[in-house]
Amino acid sequence: MQSAKTTPRSNRGSRMTTNLQQFFWLLVFLGLPLLLYGLWVIYPTIRTFTLAFTNYDGLSPARWIGWANFKELFQTEAFRLALWHNLIWILIFITIPTSAGLALAMVLNQGVRFDRFLKIAFYLPLVLAPVVTAMVWGWIYHPQQGLLNTVLVEILRFVKLLGFKVDPESARQIGWLGDPRLALLSVIAAAVWRQVGYVMVLYLAGLKTLDSEVLEAAKVDGAEGFNLFRYMIFPMLAPVTTIVVVISIVDSLRSFDLVNVMTLGGPFSTSEVLANYMVLTAFHDYRQGYAAAVAVILFLITFVFTLIYLRQVMAQEERRS
């Protein structure tokens, strides 16, 4: 192997010793990190794949059962629902927070007054632990004592003052997390609250890297307002958009804490997602093999998007070197 770059002046020893030396230093710098990573990330990933084809219950010896777990998965409604909900989650994540984050970045990048305050308002949710977010939102959604229904009661009181026939207290009947039609969307709303700031940060950084001379030139040519955005800025932001979309998808697939704390996937799996379903089958039902099969599906879906991401990263790599 050519090690020309490492030791361009290898006049201090033969090539043999340089290679040995390099090997020694590689070991020093990469040995421990690779060992740690291999043991706690790579090995467990592979292990999950082998577990998925067994009926392991965590105790009795595992028996190889081929594709049986996967066959059962796709026949189980809870799993299909979880898959479907992850898809909904992805669709919402790549549309609402993405466009909202972009819009905010566009506005705040123009140097408005108090922009620091405005930015912090959107960043803050990112700093909260997801589990804390889940608990605070769990309280917001509480039918009797929650903030949301309390606000709704006040609004209805006002509507009643206007002469409409409504019972303000009926707002307390709304079970944001208990109603099968609302549970998933309520959980996703809390997730969106977190995500908008993230997207905004990414686009703000992206906007700063845009070539301002090109933009000025376009302005001289009369490009303005939405057209400037539509034909100049947005295409120039394309690489950031790719990253934002990939991150949004991966974050959707990782979503666990909010679901686990707010609804546990309920009522009856109407807010179930793959990650929570996996934990449930592994630790409640004690079907580790089956849970590993869920994990494999989760991994494979993510992997598709990881490849897109990797391609982007590697393309950048080519351009750089």
Binding site: Y37, W40, R47, T48, A295, L298, T302, L310
Partner: peptide
Amino acid sequence: MFVAGLMLPFQVLLLPVFFL
């Protein structure tokens, strides 16, 4: 390998990491 790992849904590792 490291870049791929940063995208990994960490729940995938749950069971083997526990056993490890």
